[in-house]
Amino acid sequence: MTDLPTAGDSGWSDPDTLGAIPPVVAMTYCARCGNSANKGNHVLCRQRLAAEPPVHCTTCRRTLAVERSGREWTATCKKHGQTTGILQDA
């Protein structure tokens, strides 16, 4: 589990929040493998992303619908919309 307190944790006593829900930790995902971007080594993923369009949304981990035209690509997440990019020369 996580070290962060939950809203139901009676031990949470931050005077700045006055009993509000504690802050949410944002999770980002690898656009290639879909695993947490904060855990593990994604050097190979970054190398492949230079030559291939992304597979996963970095915000929600959904599989992207990708359209490719030459070196340009457009990836669409159902929840977060479109992103575009240009692939490097191989």
Results as ranks from 00 to 15, higher is better:
Asn38Ser: 14
Arg46Leu: 10
Asp3Pro: 00
Cys33Arg: 00
Cys45Ser: 09
Gly19Asn: 05
Ala31His: 03
Thr83Trp: 02
Val43Cys: 05
Asp14Arg: 00
Asn41His: 10
Leu64Met: 06
Asn38Asp: 15
Thr76Glu: 11
Thr74Val: 13
Thr84Pro: 01
Glu67Lys: 11
Cys60Glu: 07
Glu52Asp: 10
Ala7Lys: 14
Val66Ser: 11
Glu72Gly: 01
Gly85His: 05
Trp12Leu: 03
His42Gly: 12
Gln88Cys: 05
Cys60Tyr: 12
Ala37Cys: 03
Lys78Glu: 14
His80Arg: 09
Arg61Gln: 15
Pro15Phe: 02
Cys33Asp: 09
Arg46Ile: 06
Gly85Ala: 13
Ala90Gln: 11
Asn41Cys: 12
Thr59Pro: 03
Cys57Gly: 03
Gln82Arg: 15
Asn35Ser: 14
Arg71Asp: 12
Arg61Ile: 11
Gln82Leu: 04
Leu44Phe: 04
Ala75Asp: 07
Leu4Asp: 10
Ile21Tyr: 08
Ala75Pro: 04
Gly81Asp: 11
Met1Pro: 05
Val24Pro: 00
Ala75Asn: 04
Asp9Ser: 11
Val66Cys: 05
Gly19Ser: 05
Pro22Trp: 02
Thr6Met: 00
His42Tyr: 02
Thr58Ile: 06
Pro22Leu: 09
Leu64Arg: 01
Leu4Glu: 10
His42Cys: 07
Pro5Val: 06
Thr84Met: 07
Ala90Lys: 11
Gly8Asp: 12
Thr17Met: 08
Thr28Ser: 14
Ser13Asn: 15
Thr17His: 09
Gly34Trp: 01
Pro15Asp: 06
Asp3Leu: 13
Gln47His: 09
Trp73Asp: 01
Asn38Trp: 02
Glu67Arg: 13
Val25Ala: 05
Thr74Glu: 11
Gly11Arg: 06
Pro53Cys: 07
Gly19Trp: 00
Ala7His: 09
Cys33Gly: 03
Gly8Lys: 03
Ala26Pro: 15
Gly11Thr: 08
Leu44Lys: 13
Leu18Phe: 01
Ser10Arg: 14
Ala7Phe: 04
Thr59Ser: 09
Ala51His: 07
Cys45Ile: 01
Gly40Asp: 02
Pro23Leu: 10
Ala20Thr: 07
Gly8Pro: 03
Ile86Glu: 01
Leu4Ile: 10
Asn41Lys: 11
His42Leu: 02
Cys60Arg: 14
Arg68Leu: 15
Val25Arg: 08
Leu18His: 02
Val24Phe: 09
Ala90Asp: 10
Thr58Lys: 11
Ser10Asn: 08
Val66Pro: 10
Gly40Ala: 01
His42Phe: 06
Leu87Val: 01
Cys77Val: 06
Pro54Gln: 09
Ala26Asn: 03
Cys60Met: 12
Pro5Asn: 09
Glu52His: 02
Asp16Arg: 10
Thr28Cys: 05
Val24Met: 11
Arg71Ala: 11
Lys78Val: 08
Ala51Trp: 04
Arg32Trp: 13
Gly81Glu: 06
Leu18Met: 08
